[in-house]
Design a protein around this nucleic acid. Structure first.
Lengths: 213, 213
DNA sequence: CGAATTCTTGATACCGATCAATAGATGTGG
DNA sequence: CCACATCTATTGATCGGTATCAAGAATTCG
């Protein structure tokens, strides 16, 4: 949230996001083509966004953790360009975009904050593109784990022990590789003593080694 | 440009973008880490943006044609996250971002237009992700050509005959494949009679066939 | 607890990368 | 404007990393 906002401004933001919404594991928050009404912020749980190819192929384009803004892709033309699916039972804050835009207009820091959010989303995609365009399967999985580690750390959770809510297939889709390859990389890393896995639970042991891959 | 802006608003926009800047082939408009001061719009020529991996590997993340907005990635944290390089002698309009943000604040349609621009950039990246994550080399090259075709068409140029200012290597980087593979795909398409190439000049013959790949 | 999903591991196939050599295009200075 | 040097493109041969196919083990969830 932006600094230097007055108490009054905060009250307006609060009033707007009064509503909160629950999304159960596997349920969708919005679909491709849905009219764009709301922005969301993940409150708890985790959510993926996907785009769909005409022959049914899916590509995971984003992974959202508590605190992350969601739904920005709808800003382009009043329709969502991606589909958001909950990876586990989750809840989100709902911000009606019309009101949000008005608030941005009235409150300068809010406007700047919103622009930053969009900018951050762009940069995150650039990094994903770099990964998909230049890295080996091994590097992708390592970079993915380190990225998650950092995001958990920033949020005050353990950067070395966490639970992956995605299936191997979803990770593969996010990373542009097949689920078997993801599994093999986990096995390889474990053999090297760089991490330990137990199903969805992961414990990172040697972050340095992973970043040198 | 947004509809429903008053003449006065247009005058302010005009005044702001008074400056125009020339970028010669191979020169950079901004580099990674540069402080973010300006937004740009391509006026003539073409420009690529790249991100750089720590071991020097480059990935082309964007290709900008006349009319396209450029530099939005700097909005995230006041520093550019990509580097912009001219593919040919080009010129751009320069918009000081501070003034631009003020204008967005004062003029509602301008604010909405700016939000849309950011949204469109996000969606374009999502589509690139889909390409890099799920498509074969053949499909990538075909999709790339069709995308260019469409963009030229919208701009009033021929959708079937145009000049590629990028090298095979740059196309490969954009598409996540090697230059030799790009070349092979061009040869293959030509053998099928779907297009003709003469160095950088391309003539598309069978758009349908390309889209069915 | 039991059915269904997800994960791991192995064997094999194939696409695209790599290495290499030639041909063609581009640009520069005389 | 041409000659030469450099950069770019094409094509072939070979190699390697991932995908694919398959079967069994482990986990998850109703």
């Amino acid at each position: 949230m932006p600094r230097d906002m007055s108490d009054d401004d905060f009250r307006r933001l609060d009033a707007m996001m009064g509503t909160s919404q629950v999304v159960r594991r596997g349920e969708t928050l919005f679909r491709i083509g849905d009219p764009f009404h709301n922005l969301y912020a993940v409150r708890s749980g985790s959510i993926k966004t996907i785009v769909v190819h005409r022959d049914g192929g899916e590509q995971v384009t984003g992974l959202y953790l508590p605190g992350d803004p969601l739904g920005l892709d709808g800003v382009s033309d009043d329709h969502h360009a991606t589909e958001a699916v909950a990876l586990e039972d989750s809840s989100v804050c709902v911000f009606p975009f019309g009101q949000f835009e008005t608030l941005c207009h009235d409150v300068r820091p809010m406007q700047q904050h919103f622009h930053r959010m969009l900018g951050v989303a762009l940069v995150r995609h650039s990094n994903l593109l770099l990964m998909l365009g230049t890295m080996s399967a091994e590097q992708r999985v390592a970079a993915f784990l380190l990225n998650l580690s950092e995001r958990f750390r920033v949020r005050g959770y353990s950067p070395t022990s966490f639970s992956l809510r995605m299936t191997r297939e979803e990770m593969g889709s996010y990373l542009g590789i097949k689920l078997e390859t993801v599994s093999r990389m986990f096995s390889k890393f474990q053999k090297h003593g760089w991490l330990e896995t137990n199903g969805k639970a992961v414990h990172l042991i040697d972050l340095d080694a992973l970043s040198r891959v």
